[in-house]
Design a protein around this nucleic acid. Structure first.
Length: 572
RNA sequence: GGGCCUGUAGCUCAGUUGGUUAGAGCAGAGCGCUCAUAACGCUUUGGUCGUAGGUUCGAGUCCUACCGGGCCUACCA
């Protein structure tokens, strides 16, 4: 049996994610996981919240809560929204878990044992008023070049010039506004990525089938300037994984924590261990997904992420894995995404611009969003969400093509034969042609899904739905019924089976609607149509069904205009 | 500044290693059908493939320059 380990980039804890975040990793990962499960593969689908780092501490302070409490609360909020979007994680973990703490310290220890950790004393800006070191971008001031007064310590957003915090005129803390800043020395651990450069380079080179977006970003980091640089993996923060060398103390590192990007990807492993704990399983049960010497050799590991995450997944995390000298599973395929823009600009969490996961579900069920977002997944370039486009796509594809097909077939059957699959005769030429056509389309659909070509898969699935409407038009059971009721019965028997087939094929995209269809058809049979002719004989004459409610209500112009207006500004 | 991606019909996008009259869906137009969520089917109108050069028997596809959009650039995550 095929085995797939699938991870989605783990969403940051400080707030509710917007639709751009969703379509950039979790949603396509879910699509792939659901598809592989439907094909009979054994799947381990992992996600988690990424809880450490400065923004989490600041968000907690703003919310007036201790950071642990804030993160625990936000985890529940994000978990709830994941469930409502039907993201089928086998486990939704937390990077602050005990498992991840242990694993992160373990990896750091192994890396140190292998001579890949270096201690560096560096100077950083400390804010006395805030009682904390400030990352560069949390220092603001006047740009020495253009005079912009809110330039950040890493870059002036006005003139795009890259800066050093010490370049700023009248620097102040972006947290409190305090100008009581000083430069202090602090000791940190660096991961010697440079020592692993050739190995990483060769590894990336071997990945001929990865998206260009993925490899080009990795290559840039590997070869830019002097090549891959060492990277600080510790921070002076309160909230995080305490720096330890395995189980032992790390002299000189007291009170420090690991950098969020060091522990976050390790949580993919941590969350799998959490999964085992939650389900009262053994360590060997999660290790068979991650340790190549314990069964993970034949696992295909696929990661999903937005392009901003690529360097960490192509270089830093692999460096951690390789550098450990242990037999951990390395990623086999990285599917990366560009950004989804909102109505002419970017979605923005900090500015509250766009539609957020909780708001989306207030407007419409998850399937509507899943379908539109996946059919517009930003695979090759940034793509754009507009309300007109959304309305058009949902109404046409879901309501008119699929929903209406289900409606017309079931209602016709009810009025002529009752809510029961009619007998009719054997399939004729038209039916055989349909079967041949569907077989070709389904094989194409499978190929796109295997290759994780999401837009192409979407288009093919839509074509499969359209084939049903074309068939009905040709077979015209409403006309046949008047002269040859048996022939009409056969057409309807096949069409009812088509409905079930559509539910099975569409379930990865629109799981709720698929489930509703199967319920209406009184069947639990979700066998994948390896043989289409056979699949279209699943529902037998005499089987009953219930005409379902409207599967997808159309979005009215009025709704669209209201939503457009409501979401024109920024979130409260 | 550097790197990468991108610019194809009104809109969203396909276009394999360069090869005959550039494709799809939506929107528009016409016809058909009447089972259905005024839904469905068929036909059809739209493009000098960002601009200008170049390589080639032949370029949307390769090269150069320019123009436009986007991302990244290592202490946000």
């Amino acid at each position: 049996m095929n085995r797939y380990l699938i991870t989605s980039a783990i969403p940051y804890i400080n707030g509710i994610k917007h639709l751009g975040n969703l379509v950039g990793s979790q949603l396509p990962a879910d699509l792939f996981a659901r598809y592989q499960r439907a094909r009979g593969a054994e799947v381990m689908f992992i996600c988690a919240t990424d809880e450490h780092g400065t923004p989490a501490e600041l968000a907690a302070a703003k919310a007036g809560k201790p950071v642990e409490e804030y993160c625990a609360d936000m985890w529940h909020v994000q978990k709830d929204l994941s469930d409502k979007f039907r993201l089928s994680f086998d486990h939704f973990g937390r990077s602050s878990s005990a498992r991840n703490r242990k694993l992160t310290q373990h990896f750091a220890g192994k890396l140190a044992d292998n001579g890949l950790i270096e201690e560096v004393v560096e100077k950083q800006v400390y804010s006395n008023a805030d009682g904390r070191f400030l990352p560069d971008r949390y220092i603001e001031g006047t740009c020495p070049d253009c005079g912009y007064e809110n330039a950040r310590g890493d870059q002036c957003e006005e003139c795009t010039k890259q800066l050093d915090p010490t370049d700023l005129i009248n620097p102040r803390s972006a947290v409190s506004g305090s100008t009581d800043l000083e430069t202090r020395e602090t000791r940190h651990l660096y991961l010697r990525q440079s020592a692993l450069r050739d190995k990483l380079d060769a590894w990336i080179d071997s990945k001929k089938d990865w998206p260009v977006l993925t490899t080009s970003i990795a290559k840039k980091w590997l070869h830019d300037g002097d090549g891959l640089r060492d990277r600080g993996i510790t921070r002076d923060l309160d909230w995080g994984v305490p720096v330890q060398r395995g189980d032992a103390k790390w002299p000189g590192m007291e009170g420090k924590v690991f950098y969020v990007w060091f522990d976050a990807p390790i949580e993919y492993i941590g969350a799998t261990a959490e999964w085992a704990d939650t389900n009262k399983l053994l360590d060997s049960d999660w290790e068979r997904w991650w340790r190549t010497e314990k069964g993970a050799e034949n696992v295909r590991y696929v990661q999903f992420m937005g392009k901003d995450n690529v360097p960490f997944h192509t270089l830093s995390f692999p460096a951690t894995i390789m550098g450990s000298g242990e037999d951990w599973k390395l990623v086999d395929y990285i599917k990366s995404f560009n950004y989804l823009n909102y109505d002419g600009g970017q979605f923005s969490t900090s500015q509250g611009r766009g539609v957020f996961m909780d708001q989306a579900l207030e407007l419409l069920p998850a399937d509507y969003w899943r379908w539109w977002l996946l059919s517009h997944a930003p695979e090759n370039s940034d793509s754009e969400f507009t309300w007109e486009n959304f309305q058009q796509g949902v109404n046409k594809d879901l309501a008119d093509v699929l929903g209406n097909f289900v409606s017309r077939v079931t209602k016709f059957c009810r009025s002529k034969f009752g809510e029961i699959v009619p007998e009719g005769g054997a399939f004729g030429d038209v039916e055989n042609a349909l079967i041949a056509d569907l077989t070709a389309k389904i094989r194409t659909y499978e190929a796109h899904m295997e290759a994780i070509e999401i837009r192409k898969a979407t288009a093919e699935l839509r074509a499969i739905w359209v084939a049903g409407n074309e068939y009905l038009q040709t077979a015209a059971p409403w006309a046949a019924f008047k002269t040859d009721p048996d022939a009409a019965a056969m057409v309807i028997r096949l069409s009812l089976n088509l409905i079930r087939l559509y539910a099975v094929l569409s379930a990865p995209f629109i799981p709720d609607a698929a489930a509703s269809i199967l319920t209406a058809m009184h069947t639990k049979n979700t066998d994948w149509p390896d043989n289409v002719a056979q699949a279209l004989n699943t529902l037998q004459a005499g089987d009953t069904f219930t005409v379902p409610d409207v599967l997808f209500a159309k979005i009215s112009d009025e709704d669209r205009e209201n939503w457009q207006e409501r979401f024109a500004g920024t979130r409260d």
